[in-house]
């Protein structure tokens, strides 16, 4: 193995590893059991509603009686085959207040989704601009620079 030039086999090895990674991700996403189980669905729903009587805790996190009831309701509805939308509508109708932990994507609340994307992009653009500007400036060593380096080198060697 050591006689083989790594340059020759490495691209092939990388291609194999990338293919394996992609295949594994596909299996993980769509393979057997990849579909959300009932328990996982209950968990996700419990996480997405706020406990109506607490300060911002989710139904999953809170130990109040109301939350325990909502958890039980979600569990029963999932087992009865209700869709997420049906469960959501039923809970919103029952509790009248906004118990969604996920802010809506429209209106003023939509900003909470858009702003991070805008700011993140601006940051990335700023970082990229900083680098391209630096490169475009073309900082080639001048004769003065070379003389300085040579002088410094002499000092150290002596």
């Amino acid at each position: 193995m050591s006689a083989v030039n790594p340059q020759s086999w490495r691209p092939l090895a990388y291609a194999g590893l990338m293919a394996a990674a992609l295949g594994l991700l596909l299996v993980a996403s769509f393979g057997g059991g990849g579909h959300e189980s009932e328990l996982e669905r209950v968990q996700r729903l419990n996480d997405s509603f706020a406990c109506p009587v607490c300060d911002g805790e989710s139904v999953a996190a809170s130990n109040t009686a109301v939350s325990a009831n909502i958890r039980q309701f979600i569990d029963e509805q999932v087992q009865a085959g209700s869709t997420d939308q049906e469960i959501r509508d039923a809970l919103l109708a029952a509790y009248k207040v906004d118990i969604l932990l996920n802010p809506p994507a429209d209106g003023f609340a939509g900003l909470v989704w858009i702003l991070p994307v805008v700011m993140g992009s601006l940051g990335a653009v700023a970082a990229a601009a900083a680098m391209t500007r630096a490169r475009r400036a073309g900082r080639k060593a001048t004769d003065d620079d070379r003389r300085l380096v040579e002088e410094a080198r002499q000092v150290v060697v002596e």
């Binding site: 997405s48 207040v97 118990i99 932990l101 996920n102």
Partner: peptide
């Protein structure tokens, strides 16, 4: 801080939690 801002903006009450 967004729930605060939303309340100041149009009085709406919203909770932002784990899914977000």
């Amino acid at each position: 801080v967004f729930p605060l801002l939303a309340e100041l903006w149009d009085g709406s009450r919203l909770t932002i939690g784990r899914p977000y």
